[in-house]
Nucleic acid binder design. Structure first.
Lengths: 225, 225
DNA sequence: GCCTGTTTCAAACAGTCGTTTGAATTAAAT
DNA sequence: ATTTAATTCAAACGACTGTTTGAAACAGGC
């Protein structure tokens, strides 16, 4: 077969366009024009646009999540009785996702797409994404808490939230910073990005919890001459 | 005047709906139905939907940015010759923005909206936002670098990027975590959020820069029996 | 050959979108 | 009261959306 499968050509094209412009901003007609297939083919193979979106996401996200969980299980075994190291947990979480940025021949496409999902208000899409990520969230939340036994659970949740934001924003706007700082986006520089993200978030997780502010914090303490 | 100005009623309603569903997801007809004004009133007062979006944003963002710059200038003066403290810089950046979440009578609306903008791929909107934030970005980047003279500029840029992501995501999904962790979103609990965000990002900024990974990290060093 | 099931195709459907129009209404000024 | 400008209104415009339809093209088994 000279030309690739219609179904996969739709998936590939949709993935690329969704990553560039967003899910709602890309119409089915834009996709089918770029993929050179018929409009009805989308509904024949996927049923609806929503289903196509889900298919685009889960095609890549599922293997990524499996790898995440596998690697997490590995470092847990390797750690034995000792507590797992936070940086290793974060690496299991970030690396499999950021690596697709380097692997995808079409350039940074899918990873950005995942970053975009977290900002979507689509409700249905959000539910779907949470379903896909459920196990990952459970396992990694537990691992993070195990790595930071001193940190109150409430703080841990908030900081996971911050981490998710930093990660999503980095995925989504990967190009901006790379162009801005002049770092060459060459091939597998995702390594540096992952390292930087781990440095930042690991330190954030380990931050000392500052006490709640006094109702009126002492703006200027009595001058001590 | 019993009923408020048409122009402001459009602005208020659009702000609320945009924050809930996103800019593209909310049609002008949804807005005018909720605001009880005529459809053409939008174009009469603003010219286009794009212009309305800009008006909604800058109405609140402009005072916020002014306050940010004023407060930053203040702590710089107060610091005198000594370097400004990173936490104080971040506080100037976060607090004015997060406070509108508590002030707005319609609940957390605008702040979430700002968070949403950063995830938009709208191009035009992104340009507009960068214009509004230009001075803030310049001043605060400089302040952060001044507070962390040891940190290479490249790392500083990346970590500002992470910070922006954490902030945007927190603004955008403020409700999620509050509901999840059971923290009461009561009135001015934005204080706690700001404190947590400062703790996290300040530590992230101060993180030690770990060395770039060896090309092939020793997966399994020669077994030493 | 014919037949069966899968896949492609052009065309249309019903609906929504942002925007425009021109007349009707209100407010202000003379 | 009359004239002028500012504002509101219902109605329509053209373009685009996701989805459906029914016939055409194709496949492989017999």
């Amino acid at each position: 077969m000279a030309k690739t499968d219609t179904k996969t050509r739709i998936l590939d094209t949709a993935e690329r366009l969704f990553a560039q412009k967003g899910f709602d901003a890309v119409s089915l007609r834009t996709i089918i024009a770029s993929a050179k297939v018929n409009l009805a083919a989308v509904h024949y193979h996927f049923g609806s646009k929503q289903a196509l979106v889900h298919a685009v996401i889960s095609r890549r996200l599922r293997p990524i999540n499996e790898e995440r969980l596998t690697q997490l299980a590995e470092i847990r075994i390797k750690a034995g009785r000792r507590p797992v190291k936070l940086e290793h947990v974060l690496e299991c979480l970030f690396r499999p996702l950021f690596r697709v940025q380097a692997n995808s021949k079409a350039g940074p496409t899918f990873a950005r797409l995942v970053g975009r999902v977290m900002g979507e208000r689509n409700e249905g899409l959000h539910k779907f994404m949470m379903g896909e990520l459920a196990e990952v969230i459970i396992q990694f939340s537990a691992a993070i808490e195990a790595a930071l036994p001193e940190l109150p659970k409430e703080e841990s949740d908030w900081r996971s939230h911050f981490m998710a934001g930093a990660m999503a924003h980095t995925l989504c706007n990967a190009d901006l910073l790379v162009r801005f700082t002049g770092t060459d986006a060459g091939a597998s520089d995702y390594e540096s990005t992952v390292r930087r993200l781990i440095d930042f978030t690991a330190a954030g997780f380990r931050a000392r919890v500052s006490p709640p502010p006094k109702k009126a914090r002492a703006k200027r303490k009595p001058k001590r001459t």
